[in-house]
Structure formats: C-alpha cells, structure tokens
Design a protein around this nucleic acid. Structure first.
Lengths: 216, 216, 216, 216
DNA sequence: AGATAACCGAGACGGTACGTCCCGTCTTACC
DNA sequence: GGTAAGACGGGACGTACCGTCTCGGTTATCT
C-alpha cells in the first residue's frame, strides 16, 4: 500500500518488530479516526457508480463522505490512488482460483471471477479512468497494474504449466498471450461495451482452451 | 458526425436539395475558416501525445492552436467528441483488410493493423480517456464504439463466414468472441501495458486461429 | 475607488472622455452582474453586525451572499477594502454639515452625525478591525483614513476659520486638535465602550467649544 | 487575571487560604516552567511590533518563543488575552500621576504618559486588534477596558474634584467627558494616524483645560 | 519510595479559509 | 453570422493554519 502520503496508522504495539520491518509512525500524534477511511471509500464507490470517474473529485468525495478535503489528502495523494483503493482494496481483491486438475474448468472459473469483479458499477466506472491516468506516471502504473493482474497472471502461468505437465495444454503455449486474450475480452465486453453474458464466457473459454489444447 | 452543436458548414451548393434534406445553415454570415479545424485537431493530437487525456482541455487546445475557446466550442460540444475526431477521423479510419482466402494470415493482418493504430501516442492517450467519458452518455457511446470497431467487427464476421465455408474454421465458431479476444488483447498490451511486440501478435493470432480451426 | 483589482465596469459610453480620464475597461468581456455587488456588500454588513470583524472572511461572505469566492476576489482585493466599502460607501458617506453661523450648534450637529454613523452595528464592528489592518499598508491607510475623515476634517477647518472671523472662536485655536478631541471621544464612547448618550454629546461639545471660545 | 483556562500557578503556600479562596491547583503535578511565560510574552511583543496583530497567531508565537502551541494554550485561552497581558501587564501598567495642585500641568503629564504607552510599537499594533476582538465577548471587554483605563479614569475624577475644590475647574465639569476627549484624541493621533507630536499634546491639554476652567 | 498528576515537546488530527486555476458562457467590436 | 478578445460566475484545487488530541518522557508533590 504505497499510496499514502504519510505512513498509515499501524499503531499496534504488539506486532513483532523483529520479523517484519513494520513501517510504523515514529511516535505520537493524534490517531486517525478509523471510521473516516470507510466513509471516504464508500463515498468514492457510490460516486463512481452514480456519476462516473470524470465527475468524481476530492471535493465531491469530501462532500459525500461528510469530511473535508484535507482529510482526504492526508490519506491519498491522487484521485487515481484513492479510486484504486476504493474499488480494488489491495491486495488479494482478486481471489486466486484453485487448480482442480481440469484446465478448461479452471479457465472458465477464472474468467467468471474477473467478470464478477469488473461488472460492479464502481469497477466499470473506475477502470478506464484509472488506465487514462497512468500516462507518464510509472509508479502509479506499477501500483495499479500490479494490483489488478500481476498476482493473477502469475498464478495463471502456474496453472498452465501444470496443465502442460498433465498433457492438457501443449508445451509451447504462451500463458501470457492466453491471459491477455481472456482479460482483454472481458474488459471489452464488461467495461466498454457492457453486454457481457454467460454465453460469452463459455464461448471465450472454449475458443482459448481449444487454441492451446495439447496434441494427442 | 452528430457531434457538432450547431450546423456544420455543409455549404456545398451542388448537393441536391431534393433527394436529401441537407441541413444547410439558414443563410449569410461569415463562413468558418476551414484552416481552423485542422489547427485545432492537430493541437489535440499533439497535446494527447505530450500531456495525456487528463491534462487536455479546451483551454490548452485553444492556446496551442492559437484560437479562442469559443471557437472550439462552436465546433465540438465536448472534450470526448473533439478527441475522438482528432484521433479517429471518422469514418473508415480503420481500413478493412481484404479476404485473401488464408484466414490465419488475414487475422494476423487485422491484428497488426489495429496494433499500428492503437500504438500511435495520441491513440494510446485517447482510448482510456474516451472509454472513461462514456459513462451515462449513450449517444457518445454509440458514436465512439461505432467509429472504433463496428465496421471492422462486421467485416470480420464475413471473413469468418467465408473461412467456415472454406473449412478453415469450424461451423459453430462465434466471430464476436474471437473478435473481442483479439481486440481486447491488443488493447491491453498496447494501450494499458505498453509492451506490445510482433511475437505477441503472432502468438495471439496463432492461439485464436487454432481455437476455431475446423475439424478434419 | 482605487480598491478594485481590475477596473470597475464603468461602461457608460456617454461619459465625456475629454473632461475626465475615466478609467474604463479597454473593451469587451461579459459585464458584471450588478446585483452581485449589492448582495456581497449586504452580506458583509450583516456578518459584521452579527459576528464581528474577526469572524468575517471571504469564505463566510461568499456563503452568505450566495456567490463564490473568486467572484468577490474579482471585486475587492482584501478584507479591509471590502469592509470599508460595505460600511462606508465612499465617498461622501459622511455628509458635511452646513455652516449656520452658530459654531456651538454646528459642532453639536457634526458630533451627532458622527455618532449616528459610528453607532451602526456594522460600523462598530468594522472600525477597530479596519484600524488594526492598517499596519504597514500605507495605501490602505490612506484609503481608509481619507474615506473616514479627511473631507470632514477639512470642512471643519473652514468652519473654525469662519467662526474665528466672527469672533466666536479665538484666533489661535487649532482646528485639528479640536477635531481629534471630538472624533476620538466619539470613537471611544461609541465603538470601544458602547455607552454613548445624548448627554455625552452635549457635554463634549460644550467643553470643547468653551475651550476655544473667543475672548471678548 | 481571569484569563487562564486552567488554574494559574498560584502555588504560593504563604497566601492565606482562609481570607481568600485562592484557586490553587488541586494537587501535585509538574509545575510550570516560569521562564516560558516570559519567553512567550516577549515573542508576542516582538511579533506585534514587526508583523502586526493580524499576522500574530498561536502558531507564530510558539515558533518564535521556541515552544509548542499547546504550551501556550495551557496559559491563555485566546489571542486577545495573550496580547493584552503581553502589552499591558496588568495591573498598574499605567502609573497614576500625582496631584501637584496644578491641574493644567497634571493633565499635560497624564496625556504624555498615555502617549508614551500608546506609542510603543507593540501597543500601536495591539490596541485596534484588541478593540476589534471585543465583539460579543463581555468578559474580555471588561478585562481589557478595565486594564486600560478604569483605574486611570477614576484617578482622573479625583484630580478634577480636587481642582474644582481649588477653583481651578468649574463645578459642573464632567470629568468623564474630559477624560474621553483626551484619551480619544491620543488614540486617534498615536495609534490610528501615527502623527502624534509634543505640540499636539500641548494644544490638546490647553483646549480641554480651558474648556473646564473655573469662572472667577 | 512509590504513586500520582500536571507539565512539556512532538506531532498528527479534522476543519476553516485561503488564493488560484480552469471550466463553460456571455458580451462587445469587428470583419 | 463567425471571429478574436476578454471578462464573467462557478467548481475544484492544493496548502496554510487553526484549535485539539494523544503520546512518551519529565518533574514535582502527596501518601
């Protein structure tokens, strides 16, 4: 969570300081009101769903959450980081699907999971906005893309490797190509066009799995 | 081009007024300076490439183009329409690739054409911004999506149908699924991640073509 | 009225440009909403009376007047100038009393006039605030002091001179000393202590007039 | 000195607890560092002289005095009280002039004393600011006005009474009117206009003394 | 001697207000 | 009627300071 201008509260004195270099604030100071974080993030989600990314501003969020702008600036330094944390509460917001030994079924479930996440109104509004704000901001780019897909992509690579080992997938298959085809299609249908369907998920998974099927 | 707030020039006196109700301006008045359109659209492309969608505004465009803001507002009623016309000069900005009888090669060429278009700096900056501005604006949504892909998608359907007839593609293949997988992957790699490569194009076309190959 | 950041409207084309170098705006531009000036100045007076000078800010005035802060900044560049114009609508807010030939009566009337002006709640709140804001701001000092007393002081000098000529006042009387004694006493009683009375006006005028009475 | 938010030090164990309900702190605890009071008040005077009342804040005082803001808040509950104590260290900051038997001379000395006090840069900066902060704060108003003039005013009444007894001043003279004329004129010239002079003191005292001279 | 309690410094909190930039609009003068 | 010039009123920005609160460490008084 490198998106906070200053360190987060993290005031737990019982956390073991030896095994993990917990970035705790050096000392005193009034602790943050923990309710405010929730109010702000909730306001962000509501505004995204109702008004879209463009009309969301620190000002409108503050009004909606019943706090003042500096209170938000203390926690998030840009609209993109604020939206990212509100919509995709890092990390692990995309739960990794288990390897069941059936590659086709696993792909279908992975696609369905992504569809569910991207179909949320706040996600539909947030994703293009976030992508648009990445221009010439490498740190933000890393944060957003990492949060969205890096873990899932790496997990998918291991799924493919296992499927190759089982003979379900041919050895020269490029997991990244498959992953981008799946995710890109989901983004296009769910976020941009807004006409995603279960049939589409089936068809997509079918084509792609067939495209990498191992030769007997 | 339904994106002009007031009537476009359309002063062609040779157009037959009978067969088509050409919306011509009522009469007289100073005609628009045709050079100004080009200056504005050029400024838009330059600003997109240099500063990104977020920092582009009517104000910055006006300054860059040496024009006043009202002059731009007279021609385009929103930033999205202005950017859309500057980056994807409708229609036919995406030339349809011919059907050579080799489905795999045609797919590869179609993907390459899209990659070329999306790789332009102004397109990379514009696309997520445009998608983000579509929230709750159905007219704009239709305009943008139509301009971007509808003609290409329909053309692709005919390519697939021909390939099915030739036995290259199996009969139950869903052209739209394939199209979205291709376009989504290109968008993801080219616009969002920015690490598109020729190898990826090859791999992508390979997987997808294999996924719909006709059974012998 | 040198207290406006940019030139005031002054768009009257009939004003003779020869006899007076009217500072008119060079040219076009949307004219100011004339109602807004009144709304702002009224809000200032109300806030002064209710909350005092210290709690009055551009922000509170804007809220009360139903306008935004930049609208006020366009018209007045500092709180002191805004308050000054609201409470003492320059110039001539202090009407000069006529010379009736009875010096004692004229003094009494001049004092009463000042008492009436300083007794307004907005004036009571504004005066010490204005004085306090004059620290190291010579231009503002000149504006405020001029607006408040210069004309009146000069008029009073002529009253004294006339009274000297009539023998009512002795020749070596210093009009400025008398003026400051009168005005200072009124300020003290009306603004600071807030226990002004008619008897005090009588007593004050009596002592001072007696103090400069001509010897027979 | 009712201006301390919590109990003042008042730790003098010799003060008789019977005859006066000295508000002593209930019990132990670390005593206040007596040097800090001086550092704060000195910083206030310096800041007043250099920057004026408006720019003085608990923050700037704390920085200047090398102290933290809460340390000041523990001692004074408002800027006005802090400034008042720094500039007019109550009580008796205005030493009463003795009755020499020469009313005119005593008046001149009283005026000169006031001029000397009000001419201090910190006093010139403080006075209008203090007056401005009295709006709707009766306790503060009493404190400030009492500290500034009540004792002097009462002493002046006794001077006038003695002068009446001696025949120097006529019997119906209103000491308060005279006092306000003197003090108001001094305030106006010294604090507001800043052009006080010895000649003005002479002239002022002369006019006023003449104004109440006893008839032979 | 230990417990208690207030102090001070440090530092962050949530809120008010600041002064500025930009938005989209409107008006005038001119062409 | 289009254009340049230019100001309007409003939305939002990012920051400075306000008065308060919490902490850790200190220093006295009271049991």
């Amino acid at each position: 969570m490198p998106n906070r201008p200053s360190a987060p509260p993290a005031r737990d004195p019982a956390s073991s300081p030896a095994e993990e270099p917990v970035r705790r604030r050096p000392m005193g100071g009034r602790p943050r009101d923990p309710q405010i974080d929730g109010a702000i993030l909730g306001a962000v989600r509501a505004l995204l769903a109702e008004e879209g990314y463009a009309k969301l501003s620190f000002e409108t969020v503050a009004r909606r959450a019943g706090v003042t702008r500096p209170t938000i600036y203390r926690r998030w330094s840009s609209k993109a980081q604020l939206v990212h944390e509100a919509v995709f509460p890092t990390p692990g917001h995309a739960p990794l699907i288990p390897d069941t030994g059936d590659f086709a079924a696993d792909v279908r479930r992975m696609v369905a999971t992504t569809v569910a996440s991207y179909s949320r109104p706040e996600a539909r509004a947030a994703l293009p906005g976030l992508f648009g704000d990445l221009h010439d901001r490498p740190d933000l780019r890393a944060t957003v893309i990492d949060g969205l897909e890096t873990r899932v992509r790496e997990h998918f690579r291991s799924l493919v490797a296992a499927a190759v080992a089982r003979g379900e997938v041919r050895a020269d298959a490029d997991a990244d190509v498959v992953f981008d085809a799946l995710m890109g299609a989901v983004f296009n249908r769910t976020v941009v066009r807004g006409d995603m369907s279960e049939a589409f998920v089936e068809g997509l998974a079918g084509v792609v799995v067939e495209g990498v099927r191992g030769r007997e």
